[in-house]
Write a protein that binds this DNA or RNA. Sequence first.
DNA 1: TTGTACGCGTTATCAT
DNA 2: ATGATAACGCGTACAA
Lengths: 321, 321
Amino acid sequence: MTNIKDLAKMAGVSVTTVSRVLNNHPYVREDKRNAVLEAINRSNYQPNINAVHLSTGKSFLVGVVVPYIDHPYFALLIKGMASEALENNYKLVLFQTNYLETREIEALQMLKQKQIDALIICSRKCSWSTIEAYLLYGPIILCEDTRGKRVSSTFVDHYKSFMIALEHLYQKGHRKIGYCIGRKSGTNSRQRELAFKDFVENYHLPYEPAYIFEHCTHFEDGEQVIERIQQMSNPPSALLVTSDEVAAGIVTCAQNRNISIPGDLALLGFNNQPIAKMMNITTIEIPLVDIGRKLFLQGINISKEAAYQEIPVTLIERETV
Amino acid sequence: MTNIKDLAKMAGVSVTTVSRVLNNHPYVREDKRNAVLEAINRSNYQPNINAVHLSTGKSFLVGVVVPYIDHPYFALLIKGMASEALENNYKLVLFQTNYLETREIEALQMLKQKQIDALIICSRKCSWSTIEAYLLYGPIILCEDTRGKRVSSTFVDHYKSFMIALEHLYQKGHRKIGYCIGRKSGTNSRQRELAFKDFVENYHLPYEPAYIFEHCTHFEDGEQVIERIQQMSNPPSALLVTSDEVAAGIVTCAQNRNISIPGDLALLGFNNQPIAKMMNITTIEIPLVDIGRKLFLQGINISKEAAYQEIPVTLIERETV
DNA sequence: TTGTACGCGTTATCAT
DNA sequence: ATGATAACGCGTACAA
């Protein structure tokens, strides 16, 4: 493999000059520049990126922490980040954690080791203090409300949006409301739980733990939701479903069992994924791809101050409520 | 940031000794080892990975080229690769290409620049000769039949599996058979097209181009398939659908329009994704996660010879044929 | 068993 | 405008 030393020799100049033309620096005479350029062509030279990284201390790599990638929510976030990464000549390094803290720490370590320039954590298991300890090694961006903390974030106010959804259901006459969620822990989930509790309290509705369905992440999880509802003596009349994917699964399963939607069960999804449009699912639109883009941009932004971008959501009325 | 030089000074040894304990090499006396270990603790030392990479010429990074990540087919492949990467202490660098050749070449370039140790191409736009030119810079693994070429691959014989599926439909009495596919170009798609043509020829069936539906990748694409079928005067009685996701979309849309499955239209999906099980879709099982694992392993395997792993598929009969 | 010294390929500093 | 040369941080012959 030819390196800049070889090029210098071939072009009859110094390595400095080679480096200058390579990086489009000024102060190099036209003829010398051409000589270098020609040497590059003749030699099919490729810079050794690792040497560049060592020398510059930058890697143009941004880490992305997600629990799973085969999940539309995260896939859409990544899609947004990937496209923005491309724009800015960065690459994405993927950390699929399955919510294992050790793997999250691995990602944090890579930041510390300078193998990545920034780390975007889309969802996490680890505590806030764990993250805090790594803050001095590089930008860490979160996809949750971090106002008051010294970290940038792009997020939706899940308390607020859950409340909007719940109020909508209430206005439509529903009093027995439940919700489906991926996992109960997690910052965003706790926000939603809080909203739910406040809601039932405000409207003097009973708080019914059986109306909360955990482990709802994929389409096929809709089946168990329907099954459990069918076994209830006093089932909910409406469900908030934190992913349209799951809502679609519920709709499908309900159809097979002659459960009328929204007659027997009203459904309000989240994200406004394409599947929601096709299946006419009422939903809260969350621009995930756009959030992904913004997260990435925050990651490579060198401003010292933490920025908090709240993304507004909108209710899209269709036919499942 | 402290480096091994500092550690050496602190521990009163040479950098070599420090490097030895860092990399668990033999030939270092216990007391010196402890001295180094203690220095590491006191200093919260972190190795600069980029320096390691430059020195060793390895990066423990493997590139993955996919057209889209928000697609279950690729998401499942990546899932498999990610888990195997974790096992082996590698990280994945994602290239989302949207089937743009320039982006594929970028990935190839990173291999040439040694920023990644290997490149796995899950699906491509670029020509074989383009890839061939980069073969000398590191392992390139493909997810398509490469027998006869000097590249390793893990693949399913799409000709064969398409034929299995077609024969099954034929045995069930179908004579007007069509199929849905993501894109018509691409090695795998052409294999399937070939199978389809051979099939209709063997059984003296008419070749009906209108029975081939392109751009079928997501759940919601099922809608347009149904729409087009409904407009046909002589519609197909059975469809091969190269993704269960799409098959599920077709089923859902068909239900809404009172089209009986399999009565009016038989459906045979591919992959055996969880959604297929839930919706009772007859399908060809393709172990995508497993294929992802094997692709990754081939990437980091240093054997000089190309290996070709054909993955067998199995027909799973359910209720849509 | 240990340490010196050099190589990895590039960028940056500074003198010319 | 140009070129030595010193970092960058680590691994590793080779000598001791």
